[in-house]
């Protein structure tokens, strides 16, 4: 079985074969012997053998792994407690691409991530904005939260109005 996995903006090619709990997993040409034991629906214990010499077996490194799907269809893989976002783009039908909200081309539609009140609109229509520039301040969960541009662009639509309450998912600003 072959997959293409997007991790941290890089595509990795992964091939695997199985024998019981034992897998041979090749990542970008490097093959690892892995014993994978499932704990529950999300959690795995992996013992990964580092390649040893022919006369001495390699070390076996223990990893506690937890895997959850996130809202964009990607997987969040916690290795120990370190989260890594993995998009499975291979032949599997449920591996879908990012929706383009952050990277790439096409309009960026900034929506309210939670219900709240628009406190300030920091940009005007036609204004050029840079990635990570604050666009709108929304008060929610007792805090003021700055919502920022995902990438460089021009403000084409402003739906947010100061002082107005918005529902989660309400369209606030569109960047072209």
């Amino acid at each position: 079985m072959h997959y293409e996995l997007d991790i941290g903006g890089r595509t990795r090619r992964v091939a695997l074969t199985r024998s019981g709990d034992d897998f041979a997993v090749t990542v970008d040409g490097r093959t690892h012997q892995v014993q994978a034991t499932r704990i529950d629906a999300q959690r795995w214990s992996l013992l990964v053998s580092a390649p040893g010499r022919s006369d001495t077996p390699g070390r076996r490194v223990s990893h506690d792994v937890t895997i959850a799907s996130d809202s964009t269809g990607s997987l969040t893989v916690h290795v120990g407690s370190t989260p890594v976002t993995v998009a499975v783009n291979g032949r599997r039908r449920w591996g879908r691409k990012d929706d383009g909200a952050v990277a790439g081309s096409g309009p960026q539609r900034l929506a309210a991530p939670m219900p709240g009140k628009v406190v300030r609109v920091l940009v005007a229509p036609g204004e050029t904005v840079k990635a990570r520039q604050p666009l709108v301040v929304v008060e929610a969960m007792k805090m003021e939260n700055e919502l920022r541009a995902g990438r460089d662009g021009t403000v084409s639509e402003i739906h947010a109005r100061e002082g107005v309450s918005v529902d989660a998912g309400a369209l606030l600003i569109v960047i072209q």
């Binding site: 997959y3 991790i7 990795r12 990542v27 529950d40 893989v77 290795v79 993995v86």
Partner: peptide, 30 residues
């Protein structure tokens, strides 16, 4: 969070194994 190269590689391995053994729609059969 800036995962090391090694951590990302383990994440790739785990994601591939998890995906191949996960059956969509009806859970994981334990």
């Amino acid at each position: 969070v800036e995962p090391s190269e090694d951590i990302e590689e383990i994440a790739a391995i785990a994601a591939a194994i998890h995906t191949v053994l996960s059956v969509p729609a009806n859970g994981h059969g334990n």
